[in-house]
Design a protein around this nucleic acid. Structure first.
Lengths: 212, 212
DNA sequence: AATGTACTCAAGCATATGTTTGAGTACATT
DNA sequence: AATGTACTCAAACATATGCTTGAGTACATT
């Protein structure tokens, strides 16, 4: 007799409700941001009762926090995995491609994957206070980029690499949020990558008058 | 007797109220975006009565539209002026510097200049429908960039130049909105420029494996 | 069969929000 | 001085919003 295998239909229904609310919240957060989300719009979309939010999450705020944190973790895990797959001999183009790939894939795929990216991008603009659980993964991701970037750009200081990394990340986030991203979404992942990776790589490399 | 020189104190007071409301609206729009702005917060900040918004602008929506359009026009005029000042012999670095300068100045100056940039950036994410009055200036600005960019990048197609221009603009907009912009604001305009222009120029130039 | 548990639901509550109203004030015009 | 105009203001209104309540249902445990 293994308790874990017991299927309590009530708990399953509750889990479905929670997932539905979380997904609906993510969708609206990705479109309108934290300020533009309303309780009833979420519950309507999820086919749930308004009271379900208080019951399962405590409040609308907590539901949004949960949805955002879930999205952030998916994003960071994806990004770290992509960077870790790089060999130490990775060229600048390889680094830029790995850096951009999660966003490229999300743009091409659309749907929930893109909702995740858009929500993460919005959080980059309006960062929630009092979140520190994912700080480690954030730092891990940043250090990962600088680590594989540095060998390709020996003349650039670490501080400047950091700045360029954040610029490149901002550029990708912008694509997720702005209309140009929607235009890109009509293309295939390969086409988006061909267009975008040179720009990211160029931002990493930088271009100073002394180069010529 | 010149009617234009008559000072009707009532009209002057009304103009002050309008300006105050518009400024307060811009400030809040730059911080929270269109969804996060409330009537009473604007009127409180402007020291005006709630009815003043309906009286002078018709509705909160129209006040916001006015504030946004005002900001957009200031931004576009500034940008076009900066690009027009470029000689035909401008280097890639010159182009990038001119392209980034309005944002660099706003970041260094802060205050209302930065509010304008932030609001413009937010509009880039959530574009208002039914606005076409400034379409011409928008196109003028875009064509201006491509025009001075093309001689520096003979191997890159016009479509790709357009894409890179939009990426670079997105990068700048991101700086205006995200916390990294606030961090930059501690620096002088020269320091920001030294850090940022190479990144913008690099994004323009692009970087493909064939280059090496 | 009896009790408890996990969840759902319609209705209601308090507050926040955009807008309107009608009176009132200060200035300009005649 | 009398009338009209441009504006301000406190109050009220209707709706939207987040949240709670108390009853009700379906399942699990004993």
């Amino acid at each position: 007799m293994i308790p874990a295998e017991k299927t309590d239909l009530r708990r399953e229904a509750g889990q479905r409700t929670r997932d539905g609310l979380r997904t609906a919240a993510l969708e609206l957060l990705s479109q309108r941001g934290q300020e533009g989300v309303t309780l009833r719009e979420i519950t309507d979309r999820a086919g749930a009762n308004v009271a379900a939010v208080s019951y399962h999450f405590g409040s609308l705020k907590k539901l949004c926090d949960t949805a955002i944190e879930h999205a952030l973790e998916r994003y960071l895990d994806d990004k770290i995995l992509e960077l870790d797959s790089l060999a130490s001999t990775a060229t600048l183009h390889d680094v830029a491609a790995a850096f951009a790939r999660p966003m490229v894939r999300a743009l091409a795929a659309g749907g929930q994957d893109l909702d995740v990216m858009r929500t993460v991008a919005r959080v980059g603009i309006d960062p929630p206070q009092g979140w520190h659980r994912l700080d480690g993964k954030f730092e891990q991701s940043r250090r990962g980029v600088v680590r594989v970037l540095a060998p390709n750009l020996p003349g650039v200081g670490e501080e400047e690499l950091h700045f360029r990394t954040r610029c490149a990340a901002g550029l990708l986030n912008w694509l997720a949020l702005a209309p140009i991203g929607t235009e890109l979404a009509a293309l295939s992942a390969e086409q988006i990558e061909r267009l975008l990776v040179p720009v990211v790589a160029g931002a990493f490399r930088g271009d100073t008058p002394a180069d010529h």
